[in-house]
Design a protein around this nucleic acid. Sequence first.
DNA 1: GATGAATGAGTCTTCATTCAT
DNA 2: GATGAATGAAGACTCATTCAT
Lengths: 208, 208, 208, 208
Amino acid sequence: MEREQRRTQVLEYAQRIFARKGFHDTNVADIIAEAGIARGTFYLYFENKRELFETLLDQALGDIETRILRVRRGPGQPPAIAQVRANLQRVFEYMLAHSELLDILLHHASGFDPVLDEKLAQFSARLTADIERALSLGVDMGLVRPGNLSVAALCILGAVREVIASAVRTSPGNEPRRAPAVDELVESVLAVGLRGVATARLLAGEEG
Amino acid sequence: MEREQRRTQVLEYAQRIFARKGFHDTNVADIIAEAGIARGTFYLYFENKRELFETLLDQALGDIETRILRVRRGPGQPPAIAQVRANLQRVFEYMLAHSELLDILLHHASGFDPVLDEKLAQFSARLTADIERALSLGVDMGLVRPGNLSVAALCILGAVREVIASAVRTSPGNEPRRAPAVDELVESVLAVGLRGVATARLLAGEEG
Amino acid sequence: MEREQRRTQVLEYAQRIFARKGFHDTNVADIIAEAGIARGTFYLYFENKRELFETLLDQALGDIETRILRVRRGPGQPPAIAQVRANLQRVFEYMLAHSELLDILLHHASGFDPVLDEKLAQFSARLTADIERALSLGVDMGLVRPGNLSVAALCILGAVREVIASAVRTSPGNEPRRAPAVDELVESVLAVGLRGVATARLLAGEEG
Amino acid sequence: MEREQRRTQVLEYAQRIFARKGFHDTNVADIIAEAGIARGTFYLYFENKRELFETLLDQALGDIETRILRVRRGPGQPPAIAQVRANLQRVFEYMLAHSELLDILLHHASGFDPVLDEKLAQFSARLTADIERALSLGVDMGLVRPGNLSVAALCILGAVREVIASAVRTSPGNEPRRAPAVDELVESVLAVGLRGVATARLLAGEEG
DNA sequence: GATGAATGAGTCTTCATTCAT
DNA sequence: GATGAATGAAGACTCATTCAT
C-alpha cells in the first residue's frame, strides 16, 4: 500500500504537469521536481515516462467507462431516457471535476505513440459500439427511428465529446461546476440528440 | 514564383511525413531527405520546423473554411437544408480526399505549442459561432426549435467531426471515397441532426 | 563462521554471473537476485562490487598457484619431467573443472581497474619467474638447453595459457573433461615444450 | 577524403584514450575533448562508442594479419624457417611500434560485447588454423615432427602472444624498440618453438 | 543483522539550428 | 542560392551506494 500510495502521488503530480505542458514538453525533471523525489526514485515506480503517461490514460479511460452503465429494460427499471440522462450526467460531472484528465485525453494523448493511439482508438470504438447497440435495441422496441445507426452512434459520441471539451475549456479552474449548469448541459445535449434541431416546418420544406 | 513552387513542394513532402509520424517524431532530417534538399536549404524556405507545420495547418484550416458557405435566405436561394447539405458534402469530400491533413489536424496538431493550440481553438470557436448564428436565424424563422443554441452548435460540430474522423479511419487508402458513401454519410448526419434519434413514442415516455 | 558461509555462497553466485556477463555488465542487482539477499545485505558482506570481484580473482589465482609445485631434485624425488607433467595435469584439471573462473580470468579481469590489472600482472610475473628459475636450474644440470631463458619461460606460460583457453572454449559445459583428453593435452604441450616442432632435417636446413 | 581524414584523426585520439583507460572508463566526453570536436560531431562520424571501438579493433586485427604471409615452398623461395622468422619479425615490429593497439587487444577488447568477443575468437581461430596448416605441410615434407598439431599450433600462438605482451609491457614508451632486441626476441621464440627447451639428456630421462 | 526505498552523479544519444564555403 | 559539416543544449535512463527502519 505504501508503494501504491507513492505511485499515486507521483501520478497526480505528473497529471497536473502533463495537462499543462503536454507529453513531449514535460520532462522527467519537471515531474520529479514537482513531486519532490529524486531522479532514480522516479524509475523505481515507473518504467519510463511513457509508462507513467499510459497509466494515467488507462485510469482516465477506465474511470469514464465505469460511469457509463448499460441501459437496462424491464419492470422496475427507470425509463430509458432517464438512464441515458444519468449516464450523461455522471460522465459530465466526472469530466468537469477532472478537467486535467480531459485535457490530457483531448490534447496530449494522441499521435506520439502507436500503442497509446491504439488504446484511444479502441476506447472510442467501444463507446461507439455501446451506443450503437443501445440504439439498435431502441429500434427493435420502436423507441428509436431506424436509419444508419453506426453513423448515429458516432454523432452522439462526437456531440458529447465536443460539449464536454467546450465546457472544460470555459471552466478551466478546478472548482466543480455548479450543478445546474451540468443539468442544463445534459438536457440540451439530450434534446438535440433525441429530437434534432429542426422544426416540423423545416422538415416539411415549407421555408419560403 | 520559383521560390513559391519550391516551398509548396517541400510542404507537400512534409505533410505526408507529419501525417505518418506526427510532429515530434518527424525530424528535419526526414523532411529534407524526402524533399531531396540540403539541410541548409530547408532554413532558406522556412524559419524553422514549427513555422512549416503552422503553414500546413493554416492551409488546412483555410481550405476547410473555404468550403463552408454561410446559409443564405432569399428568393432564388436553395432551401436551407439543401445549403447545409451542400456544406457538409463539400467538407466531407475534401477531408476524405485529404485524409493526411485530417490526420494531422486530429492527431498531431494539438498540445505541443500554445500558438498552434490557440489557432485550433479559434478555428473551432469560429465554426461553432457560425453554426450557432445559423441556428439562431433558423429559430427566428421558425425553422429551428428554440433551446440552448450554443450547445446545439457544439453537438453538430462534434457530430460532424467524429463522423469524418471515423470515415477517414476506415478509408485509410488515398483513393477518393466513392460518392454514394459520402452522400449516405451526409444524409445520416443530417437526419440525426435535424430530427434526432427518438421516435414520438420514446419522447412520450410510453416505453413500458 | 556463519558469516563466512554466507559470503562464500554469494561469491559463488556472483562468480557464475561474472563469468556469463563480465564485470561491467553484472549489476549488483543481478547478484542479489541470484543470491536471494537484499541490497543492503550485499554491502554487509562486501565493501563494494569491486571488492567482491577482487576476492574472486584472488581466490582463483591462489587456487592455481597452489597447484603448481616447485620442481624438486634429489633422491626419492620423481624425475623432473614427471613433476612438470604433474603440475600441468593439476592445473589443466582444475581449470577445466572451473571454466567459469577461467573465463573471468581470461576475459573479464583485465583493463577496468588498475589495482586488479596490477594483480594479474604480478601473477603472470610470478609464474614466469617460477618457470624461469626452473629452467635455469635445468641448465645448470644439463637438462635444459641454454638460451634466453626469460623468453623461454614466457613461451611456456603462453603456450599453456592458450591451450587451456582453447580447451575451455571447446568444453563449455560444466561436466569435467574426460581424463584421457587432459592427458593428451598435457602430453602434447609437453612434447612441444621439450622438443619443439622441428625435425632434424628442418633444423639442418636441408629442405630443398 | 576530407571525411575519412577526420574520422581517422578521431580514431587516433580515441585509440590513445582507450589504451590508457579501457573501453568502459573512456567516455565519449573524453574522446571529444581530446579530439577537440563537439559532441554532435562525434556522432557524425561514428554510430556510437562501440562502433568506434570496433573499427579500431578491426583495423588492428587486419594490420596484424596483413603482416603474416603464408609460408611458400618452391624454387626461389627462401627456406621455410626464414619465412617464419620474417613473419615473426614483422609482427613483433608492428606490435612494438603500436603498443597502444596491443594494449587494447590484450586488455580491453574482451568480455564486454558478444560481437567483439566473437571477432576476437575468430581472429585467434584463424591464426591457429594458419599455423596448423603450415605445420601439417611441414609434417608431409618431413620438416615437422608429427603429433597433435592443433595443440602445437595453440602452443605457438600462445608463446608468441605472451612474448609480445611482455615485450610491450617492458617498453611502454612509443619509441620503436632497438632492432637487435626484436631480433633476439624472434630468435629465442623460434629456438624454443623449433627445438623445445630440453636437452637430449633430459629427454632420455638420465637425470639422476 | 537484514532490509529495500531513496539517492543523484554519470553517460549516452538526439536533433534543431547555424554558418563558412 | 545551395550546401552539409559542425554545434551543443537538452533529455532519458542506469546503477552503485547509503541509511532509516
